[in-house]
Simulated assay, not measured.
Amino acid sequence: MLPVAPPDPRALPRTSLSTISVEHIRIDSIKSYAETRAALERLPHFDDRTRTLMQYGDIAKVRSALGEIQGDAGLVVFSVATHGDWLQIISGKRNVVQYVIGNVLVSTQMTQHELAAALYAPLRIVVYENESGAATIEYDRPSTLFGQFGNERVTAVARDLDEKIQDILIRAAT
C-alpha cells in the first residue's frame, strides 16, 4: 500500500471566528396573539410575479412591481414559518410563528457593498403567545446585526431599517 501524503494546507478551506454584540428587542403586545398576528399578516406578501420579472431581466418592471408590492409599509412578508404547528411533533401545538420580513431594495443597498449582509436580510421576527395570553414579538436590531461588517454604507441603511421595523411592530402590538 502506498503512503498517503498529508493534504496541502493551502487546499483546505479557511475558517475564521468572530464574536459580535447584538441588541435583542422584545415587545410585549397589549393585544392577543391572534390580533397581533393578524396585524402582521396585513403587510404585503412577496409573490412570484417579481421573481418571474427578474428572470427576464426587465429591471424597470421589477422596480415598479416592488414599489407596488411594498406599498406604504415599505416592508413585505417573504415567508412564514409555523413553529407552533411544528411543536406538536414533540410537545403539543403552541402559538408561535416566525416571519421573514424585509424590503428587496433595502437588502440590495446593503448586499451590494457587503455580500455577507444577505445572511440577515430579510429579517427574522418571532411572534408568540406569552404566559399572560397576549403576544410577544422578538427580533434583533438590524443595525447591530449589519454593524458587524464595519461598513458604514451598510450600517447607515440598517439604521433606517431599525426605525422602519420598529414602527411596523409597535403598530402590530398596539
Rank of each mutant, 00 (worst) to 15 (best):
M1S: 15
L2E: 15
A5P: 10
P9M: 08
A11C: 03
L12A: 14
L12R: 13
P13G: 07
P13N: 09
R14L: 12
T15D: 06
L17R: 13
I20Q: 05
I27Y: 09
I30D: 15
Y33M: 04
Y33A: 03
A38F: 00
A39L: 07
L40S: 08
E41W: 00
R42D: 06
R42P: 06
L43Q: 10
L43N: 07
P44G: 08
T52N: 06
M54W: 00
Q55A: 03
D58R: 08
D58P: 01
I59Y: 08
I59T: 11
A60I: 06
A60F: 10
S64G: 09
L66V: 04
G67E: 12
I69G: 01
I69A: 11
Q70S: 12
L75M: 12
V77A: 04
S79G: 15
T82A: 12
G84C: 00
K93N: 09
K93D: 05
R94I: 09
Q98S: 12
Q98F: 04
Y99C: 07
G102L: 07
G102C: 12
N103S: 15
V104Y: 12
L105H: 05
S107K: 00
T108C: 01
H113T: 07
L115A: 13
A116V: 09
A117H: 02
A118C: 08
A118K: 04
L119A: 15
Y120R: 00
P122M: 07
P122K: 06
R124F: 06
Y128N: 10
E129A: 05
E129G: 06
N130H: 07
E131S: 03
S132G: 04
S132E: 11
T136F: 04
Y139D: 13
Y139E: 14
D140R: 12
D140G: 06
D140M: 12
R141I: 01
T144I: 05
G150N: 05
N151C: 03
E152K: 13
E152T: 12
V154S: 03
T155E: 10
A156P: 01
A158Y: 05
A158C: 05
A158P: 06
D160Y: 00
K164A: 13
I165V: 15
I165H: 08
D167K: 14
I168A: 15
A173E: 07
A173S: 15
